[in-house]
Write a protein that binds this DNA or RNA. Structure first.
Lengths: 148, 148
DNA sequence: AACTGTAAGTTTAGTTACTATACTAACTCC
DNA sequence: GGAGTTAGTATAGTAACTAAACTTACAGTT
């Protein structure tokens, strides 16, 4: 039985299992933003996917988030009611709806970005730039492997 | 403005964002196992957390999964109805319930492990052992940073 | 100009995966 | 033998979806 790589595999298995559980936990924790109120992770991801500049089609949003159009409809309805997002008509195609961030939506976007930045800054105090580079590169291969 | 590390940070941000979306997608996809039927990710995580040997307390399970006891009650009820898990009384403490995998539950555990193994094998064809080692090490630091 | 097929978005009902709260039963300790 | 704690359950509510059926609108044909 030539399973001589038993020493490293369990470590990755274990680390990755813990990462999944940690992310599951993180992904169900709403976060409150100054002057905006609490936003769920899905709402935050949607704001991220729209971006601070320009506007995005509903269907494009569904593709970016990897969810169905129906789910996007519901998310956008909630974000619209919180005045973080506005719908506008497509100039030529009358079926399409363009989504863009309001001033408040952009504020939420920025605050979330700053939160990210703070996280990366903290990470940099514990990891060398080389390690971070390898990590980023590895994630891409990892995603590729997940996709098959 | 001394932001001279702008070259690498966006890459990690982008990769990590994609990873999150990919994992969100993965974590809502049920998977069908031979002779057992479809299992949701939460069910699978629970089976993993119980493990093939011995038995676990409900409260210990809640701690391992990072969810409330109430959530565990519901999950175990579903797994019990699928005969993947059995409850048994604690020998001395009459409040406690011990959970262990049935033969079918162990089969599901093993099949899932094999799936993991196949994934890691595929990963190894695209990454050097050194890269994998750095990746595992980095995940741990990453989890630590997430915890604060 | 009418006809067919496709694409964009919405609606609705159902499911999963939780949480929070209130509860019962059992244990511990002083 | 209470008082406080711990183990587990029950219940109602919410978030985050999916699937399926639907309405409009467009695009290409004939």
């Amino acid at each position: 039985m030539d399973n001589n790589n038993k020493h490293e595999a369990p470590s990755l298995t274990h680390s990755f299992g813990r990462l999944i559980l940690q992310l599951r936990k993180l992904e169900r924790q709403p976060r409150t933003f100054e002057g905006i109120g609490p936003l769920t992770p899905s709402e935050m991801h949607t704001i991220d996917a729209i971006g601070p500049e320009g506007s995005v089609l509903m269907s494009e949003l569904a593709a970016r988030l990897g969810i169905t159009k129906g789910a996007v409809t519901q998310l956008i309805a909630r974000l619209e009611s919180k005045t973080l997002v506005v719908r506008s008509m497509h100039p030529t195609d009358h079926r399409s709806t363009l989504i863009s961030l309001t001033v408040q939506g952009k504020a939420a976007y920025t605050m979330h970005e700053e939160l990210h930045q703070a996280f990366y800054n903290q990470l940099q105090t514990q990891m060398s730039p080389e390690e971070i580079a390898v990590f980023a590169k590895t994630i891409d291969k990892f995603i590729f492997a997940l996709d098959h």
